[in-house]
């Protein structure tokens, strides 16, 4: 086996660090967008009646059927043709990732909301709260605690999926790793390093969320 050399990594460390930052920002923004979509869609599907449930279900199931690669490529190349306005890669990346993840987020939130006991809604209504007040102050907080493990794994998805944004040339970690590998002809060191970085980003999150959940579980059990 040929030698392993660290210089390609150390030589471009600022470039790669910048790329890592882009990955983090991309993941965070798409999680935020996905969360916003997920809360609205999840709550509307749970409380909004049959028609809304069906229509929004269509969005959710469609995102389960279409690969993220396709969504990203469509968002960056085809969507601007619809709105008559070009998007920069980062915006397209966040929209594509967020919309795709939003469907899974919506399902998670819907599961969380329905897992809270019916009696909690009755108790809140019995105090004279409106449905919206009850959902906001009583149901949603409990649901969020219960969803913590699922939210943690969705975060891991967000980070892993951010790598797919490389195909539309978002300057995130994978893309920039490819650039450096192409320049230095040392793919092994660079791709392995990239793998390690992703691993270090994702693995502790999954474990960490488990620990936090165990501490907070009593806040969600009614």
């Amino acid at each position: 086996m040929p030698s392993v050399v660290l210089s390609p990594i150390t030589g471009s460390w600022q470039f790669l660090l910048q790329a890592l930052w882009t990955t983090v920002v991309l993941s965070a923004l798409s999680m935020a967008l996905a969360f916003a979509i997920g809360v609205v869609v999840g709550a509307l599907r749970t409380y909004g009646g049959r028609l809304l449930d069906f229509t929004l279900g269509f969005y959710v199931d469609s995102m389960r059927a279409i690969p993220l690669l396709v969504v990203l490529v469509w968002t960056f190349f085809a969507f601007p043709l619809v709105i008559g306005h070009s998007l920069n890669v980062m915006t397209a990346g966040v929209i594509g990732l967020g919309t795709h993840l939003g469907a899974y987020m919506a399902e998670t939130i819907r599961a969380g909301l329905t897992s809270v006991r019916r009696g909690q809604m009755w108790a809140a209504l019995a105090l004279g709260m409106s449905r919206v007040q009850a959902i906001r102050t009583i149901i949603l907080p409990q649901a969020l605690v219960r969803m913590l493990p699922a939210l943690g794994s969705l975060f891991v998805f967000a980070v892993k999926d951010s790598a797919i944004a490389s195909v539309i040339a978002v300057p995130e970690l994978l893309r920039q790793t490819q650039v450096v590998a192409g320049n230095t002809f040392r793919p092994f060191e660079l791709y392995t390093a990239a793998m390690l970085v992703y691993f270090l980003l994702c693995f502790p999150v999954a474990r960490g969320v488990d620990r936090i959940y165990r501490r907070l579980a009593h806040l969600g059990s009614s």
Binding site: V159, D161, A163, L174, Y191, M195, Y198, C202
Partner: peptide, 11 residues
């Protein structure tokens, strides 16, 4: 499970 599939394929 903790690393992106796309990176695994490239690797």
């Amino acid at each position: 499970r903790a690393t992106p599939l796309i990176l695994q394929i490239y690797w």
